[in-house]
Design a protein around this nucleic acid. Sequence first.
DNA 1: TATGAATGAGCTTTCATTCAT
DNA 2: CATGAATGAAAGCTCATTCAT
Lengths: 212, 212, 212, 212
Amino acid sequence: MTDLTRRPGKSRPRLSPEERREQILRAAGPRFAEHGYSGTDVQDIADDIGVGKGTIYRHFATKETLFLATVQRAVESLSEHVALKVEPLPDPLDKLKGSVHAYLEFFDACPGVVELFIQERAAFGTEAQPLYFAHRDRERAKWQPLFDELVARGDLRPLAFRDMADTIGDALYGAAFAHRLTGGRCSLAERADAILDVILNGILKPGDRAAE
Amino acid sequence: MTDLTRRPGKSRPRLSPEERREQILRAAGPRFAEHGYSGTDVQDIADDIGVGKGTIYRHFATKETLFLATVQRAVESLSEHVALKVEPLPDPLDKLKGSVHAYLEFFDACPGVVELFIQERAAFGTEAQPLYFAHRDRERAKWQPLFDELVARGDLRPLAFRDMADTIGDALYGAAFAHRLTGGRCSLAERADAILDVILNGILKPGDRAAE
Amino acid sequence: MTDLTRRPGKSRPRLSPEERREQILRAAGPRFAEHGYSGTDVQDIADDIGVGKGTIYRHFATKETLFLATVQRAVESLSEHVALKVEPLPDPLDKLKGSVHAYLEFFDACPGVVELFIQERAAFGTEAQPLYFAHRDRERAKWQPLFDELVARGDLRPLAFRDMADTIGDALYGAAFAHRLTGGRCSLAERADAILDVILNGILKPGDRAAE
Amino acid sequence: MTDLTRRPGKSRPRLSPEERREQILRAAGPRFAEHGYSGTDVQDIADDIGVGKGTIYRHFATKETLFLATVQRAVESLSEHVALKVEPLPDPLDKLKGSVHAYLEFFDACPGVVELFIQERAAFGTEAQPLYFAHRDRERAKWQPLFDELVARGDLRPLAFRDMADTIGDALYGAAFAHRLTGGRCSLAERADAILDVILNGILKPGDRAAE
DNA sequence: TATGAATGAGCTTTCATTCAT
DNA sequence: CATGAATGAAAGCTCATTCAT
């Protein structure tokens, strides 16, 4: 009875709440990344997907809520991307190397995520721990057994897990930031091996190892 | 009718332009670091040093100009701090190690500088290269001879200078950011040796070096 | 595909239009009284009775219509309450006294009605005469014969009906408002006798009557 | 040296803070009275006096603050008007009568004040006691000695002060409201004598006094 | 030169009303 | 009939910047 032909004109698609939410987040990400938190008018996001401003506010209580959901989504994407690449690898050392590559690849694919991380801190200041670091804290625990195994196996030097994990994490985080913020020409993926080499082998010549 | 005698107590100190400029920058730094760029009212800075808002605008054309001068000042402080610590050291390897310590010490002393870097990017977006990275680009050239000498001497592995410099730079930058953004408890200085150890020696056990 | 059997538990009661209308008005009264006209969201009223917002709009064309119906209902309640109390009394003077008591009792029982009267004026301004006063104008005519009879009987001084009626009406209206707006502790009913005493006998000592 | 001729064009008068405040309040009163609290855009008031919206907000922190200052000003005007009329009268009974006349005259002169009182209650609800009643509470104490003296002199019946004062106050307040809300044609001043007559002498014929 | 009152564009959020389902 | 997602006009408040004094 009801016409099955979609009138392309006025008929609003009537998305499900989940679809709408997802649609909004997809539009919000690039806006916030490119124009910043305060530089983005909620109206802009609404216009991008052709809905009224009220529709945004039906799904996200405040601009802040929307923004944080956008960041959270990015953090989860990063996490999933790394997990997906690493899981199938059987060898722990390969997992470690693979995670470095995956991490850097992610930021090649989604360079705006760096901006989101910056915007979060810029907008919400000293109060809360940024979502990325909250997530990193949680994730670190998962890596401990892997490092332990590598040390036990004699692959890694018996350094404190925390020192290794933090230093590697900071190096990658720093690389992703620096790459984005300097407008780095070559891809991060191309730098991955060089970074891994330093992390794994250090820059000193083996004979000098006693030096430090 | 009104008394014409200037009470010396009330007579404004009449700072020289340079002094005033410096005074303003000193007040602006903490404000911008703590409340962010858009969260800081120019009036707040004026109030902090007890002058009218117009006075700020006499010395800095716009809020943006003032902010960037504040960041520039911080970048120069960092640079000077590192240079001061490194210069007296005669040995190139000591210079390298010393610069890592000095860099991290600086952010222990001036943690707000991280916020300034974040705010700059957040406020001015994708257009310009942040002052810190512009400065880092310029500084890198100064380090090349030192690395070359260390490689020539056989202290360092013959890696590409750029790879080493970027990786080290990113690791330190990442460490400073992560430390501030996670509310790191211990000082950065305490982490310096562990970071240096990874950078210099890597995390792999020497025997495994072929692995990479 | 969707089940066509209506589970009887979930089947909405399907109120008759009149019942629905009444249900809506019952919910609207307290909302408007407590939160004011603009402070009340039509959604709130819908939520209170567990229907969709559209249902409200099916029964009342606009929020304004709904609000005015709510006020009208209150005015009629007041009128009925007084009439019910006064009608059985045979003596005109008792009717007069009884109406004062009934009027004040009503506002003890329904204190929110004062708020409705205030809200009506506040929201719709100078244009229209408020429903309460429109009603009072209409009612006054019914009291004229009673006052005439009391004057004729020699119970009342031969004052102009309008002056008496207005003054009494204003005194009661003022008392109800003042009581609500000051958060009066004792009940209005308790003040009824004192008010009646002043209205009936005045505050002057009889001997001084010439004074005025 | 500075030109003393006022250029009528762009030269902003540069009012003193007090003058500006007063100017704003003078403009706000009629606006709020005519269009209500929520019906008045702060921009409207700004336009009325030819200033920017920011200027309003420089002098009043919020729209609410501005509104309440407007009401407070009206309450004080009323109070002053009554005091001014009553003070010179030597006889206490004349003071009482005079205050009734002055009160009603005030609302003839400033009928919008009724709207302000209504708007205050409508906008700020049940929480706070309206400024008018707060003021009335404070003022009542001043009248007690006068009533006591009149009772002692034998002019007034020995009724409870509170009952007399409240009943009179409510009658006048009610009269002012009813007059405004019914669009009363004749002036309140013309009704003053009739109201006073009821208050002073009651409506009963003297012989019936035992009736109540 | 210093001041701070004035400006007004800009942005977030609300909510009466509509209408496709 | 009932629903509730969608709309979009509207209004409060901020603050960088200007400029008369």
